[in-house]
Design a protein around this nucleic acid. Structure first.
Lengths: 211, 211, 211, 211
DNA sequence: TATGAATGAGGATTCATTCAT
DNA sequence: GATGAATGAATCCTCATTCAT
C-alpha cells in the first residue's frame, strides 16, 4: 500500500571471521549511519566513517570497498528495523479499509522515525544508478502486490473498475511516499493524525471503496 | 493540479553589454542544458559547458559564477518553455473535471517533453539546499492555489467535505509529479493516454466529484 | 637628512598625442592611485584601474604595459607633490640643527600626508626587484648627500669624528623613515610634535652637535 | 635594543601521531625554508614545498593548511635558532654600554646568518595582515623592554632626560633593524665590524651615555 | 587486523593580455 | 582611440585509495 526505500546488497569483502572483526564491522556500520544522517550521502567523506567510529581511516577498507557498499548495509539494517518491531503482525483483516489504513499508518510512522535516513535514501536514489535500479525493482514488487489487491477488489465489485490497477497502485503509493518526504523531511507542519486520515480517505475515495 | 519544478534567480556577473556577449551567454546556457541533460548536475564539470559551446574554459566565468547559477538560468528557460507555447490559453474553466484533466495533461506533456531536465531538477533539489528551498516555496504556492479550488468545490457541495484541502492538494499533485518522474524518467512503460486517464480518474474519485 | 621613496620611470608606450589621449592617460593615473591606496599593489587588479576610471578594461593597454609601469607614474607624481609645494624653499640656513630639523619635519609631514601610498611603496619595494633597485639607488644618492654634510661637520669639529659618515647618514635616515612607517602606516599613536622633536634630538645627540 | 621578526602560531592540522609523520613534517618545514629563501614568500608555490622534499603534492595538506601556516612554522624555528645558540648567556649587565653593544652585535650576527629568511619575513610583513599584526605586537613588547632600560638610565642621570623613552627605544631599534636589512639583504657593502661599532656609537651618543 | 601516512588524479578559478569591432 | 569579450596558463586543494608497519 505504500512505497519506496530499500536496497539489496551483495558480496563486498569477505565477512569477518573473528569476533573482533565482527564488532569492528558493526561499529563501522553504526558510525556510517550517523555520518550519513548528519552529512547526507554526497557530502559524507569515507574517512569520516572510521573516524566517527574512533578508528584509523584505513580500517574502512578492511570491510568495505566503497561508500555505496556500506550505505547498502546501513539501509539493510534500517529496513529490518522498519519491518520487524511493529509490523506485519496482525493485519489479519480482510476489510480492505483496515488493511489500507494499517499499511499507511505503519509506513508513515516508520518514515517519521527514520526521516533523516529516508532523506538520504531519497538523495542517493537520485544520484546513484545502482540505487535507482534497486529502488525501482523493489518498488515494482510492492506495486505488483498492491495491484493484485486492487484487481481483486475490482473483481469483487468493491473498487472502481475503470482504474488501471498497476498504475493506480503505483500512483497511490507514490502519493503517500512523497507526502512522507514532504512532511517529515522538508518539515512542512502537518499534524500526524490529520495526515494519516487524509491519506486513508484519499485511498478509499480513489478506489471508490463503498463506505 | 500539479507540482514541482522551478527556481528563481538573481544577479550573477554583469549582464553582457554587447550583442556578441548576449549571444555568447545564450550559447553557454544552451550548452549547459545539453551537458546537464547528458551528465546530470553532479557529474557535469563546469569546464564542459564552455567546451561544449566551443569556447575557452575561462569564458564561463565571464557570465556565471557557479554551476548553480547557470543551472538556475537553464531552469528559468525551461519553465518558460513549459508555460508558454501550449498552456493557459483556453481553460474552459467552470467544469472542474475539465479543469483538472487539462492541467494534468498539460503537466504530463511538458514533463515528458523535458524529461531529462526534470530528472536533473529532481536530483538538484535533493542535493542543493538553495534549490530545495526554492522548489518548496514554489510548490507551496501551487499547493495553495489548488487547495483554494478544492475548498471552493467543497463549499459548493461538489467535493468530499471531509478532506483537508491543503493536504489533499499537495497529495494529489505529488502523485502526478511522482508518476511523471517514474514513467518518463525511470522509463516505466505506460501508455501516455492510459496514464493521463488514470491520473484524471484518481483525482475525480479522490475528490468525489460526482460523475 | 631622510630617506626612502621614489622611482624613476622610462619609456612605456608612446606618449599620447591627442588631447583626449592625454586626458585618458591622466585619468588612468589618478584612478590607479586610488586603487593602489585602497588595495595595495599586490591585490590591485589591472582591470580595476580602467574600471575605476570608468573605462573599458582594454583601454589600459593603450597607455601602459603593466601594473609596474603605471605605478611608476603614480610614484612620480607623488614625488613631485612631496617636493614642490612646501619644500626646499628656505633652507637657507647654515645652522646644522635647523637644517636637520627642517628636513625631518618636512619629511614626516609629507609621509603623513601620503601615508597610504607610502605603505604601498614600502610593499612594492619588498616585492618587485625593479623597485627595490630604484629605491636603493635613490637612497644611496640621498645618503651620499647627507654623508657629505656629516663629513663637513666632523671636519669643522662640530660632529663626533669617530662616526662613519656614510653609515651614520644611512642609519639616521633609516631611523626616521622607519618611524614614519610605524607611526603613520601602522598607526602607532604618537603625537606628531613629540615625534619630530624626538627625531631631531636623536640626530643632534647621535652626531654630538654641541648644544 | 633591537627589533623586528617573529610570529606566533597555533593549531593547523592534527599533529602527526607516528615517528614517520614527525619526520615528514620536519622535512616539509626544512624544504619550505629552502623554497622561501629561494623564491620569497609570494613567488613560492605550495606544491614546490613537498616537491622539494621529494613528496607528492598532497602530502603538504596532511600537515598544513596554507603557505602562511608553514611559514609560521619556519619562522618559529628560525627564532629559536636566533636565540638559543649564542645568546642571552653572559650579558654582564650593569654597564649599559656593554649591554647595548652585546645586544647589537648579537642581533646583527643573527640577522646576517639568516639574511635570506629575514628578507622574506620583511616581505611577508608587508603583504600579509596576520604577520603585520604579529610583528607589531612582538615589536611593541621589545620596545617596552628597551624603553624601560632607557627610563632607568634617565632616572639615574646616565641618559639624556629630554628623550621620550618609548619613541627613542623604537627609533633606535628601527635604525638597527633597517640597517641590518640594508646591509645584509640588499647587500650594501659595509664591513661588519664597522657596522657594529657605528651602531653602538650611535646608541651611546643618542642616549648621551657618558663616555 | 589496525594504523595512519602518502599518493596523485581531477576540477575550479583567476586575471593579464589580446583582438575584432 | 575605446570597447569589452575571449583566451588559457597556472595553481590551488580535496579525498578516495594504497601500503608499509
Amino acid at each position: 500500500m505504500n512505497p519506496e526505500a530499500g536496497v539489496e546488497d551483495r558480496a563486498g569483502r569477505a565477512a569477518p571471521k573473528s569476533k573482533r572483526g565482527l564488532r569492528t564491522r558493526a561499529a563501522l556500520i553504526a558510525a556510517a549511519r550517523e555520518v550519513f544522517e548528519r552529512d547526507g550521502f554526497l557530502d559524507a567523506r569515507i574517512s569520516d566513517i572510521p573516524k566517527a567510529a574512533g578508528m584509523a581511516s584505513g580500517t574502512f577498507y578492511t570491510y568495505f570497498d566503497s561508500k555505496e557498499e556500506i550505505f547498502t548495509e546501513v539501509v539493510r539494517q534500517i529496513r529490518e528495523e522498519m519491518l520487524h518491531p511493529h509490523v506485519r503482525e496482525s493485519i489479519g483483516d480482510d476489510d480492505p479499509r483496515e488493511l489500507i489504513a494499517a499499511a499507511n499508518r505503519e509506513y508513515l510512522q516508520s518514515y517519521r522515525r527514520n526521516a533523516r535516513l529516508m532523506a538520504v535514501l531519497e538523495q542517493v536514489s537520485k544520484v546513484d544508478e545502482k540505487f535507482r535500479t534497486l529502488r525501482r525493482e523493489r518498488g515494482a514488487a510492492l506495486g505488483e502486490r498492491n495491484a493484485a489487491m486492487i484487481r481483486d477488489l475490482q473483481e469483487r465489485g468493491l473498487a472502481d473498475a475503470r482504474l488501471d490497477p498497476l498504475i493506480t497502485s503505483w500512483a497511490l503509493s507514490s502519493m503517500v511516499g512523497r507526502m512522507a518526504y514532504t512532511v517529515f523531511v522538508e518539515g512542512d507542519e502537518v499534524p500526524f493524525e490529520r495526515l494519516v486520515e487524509t491519506m486513508n480517505q484519499l485511498w478509499y475515495n480513489a478506489l471508490r471503496l463503498g463506505d
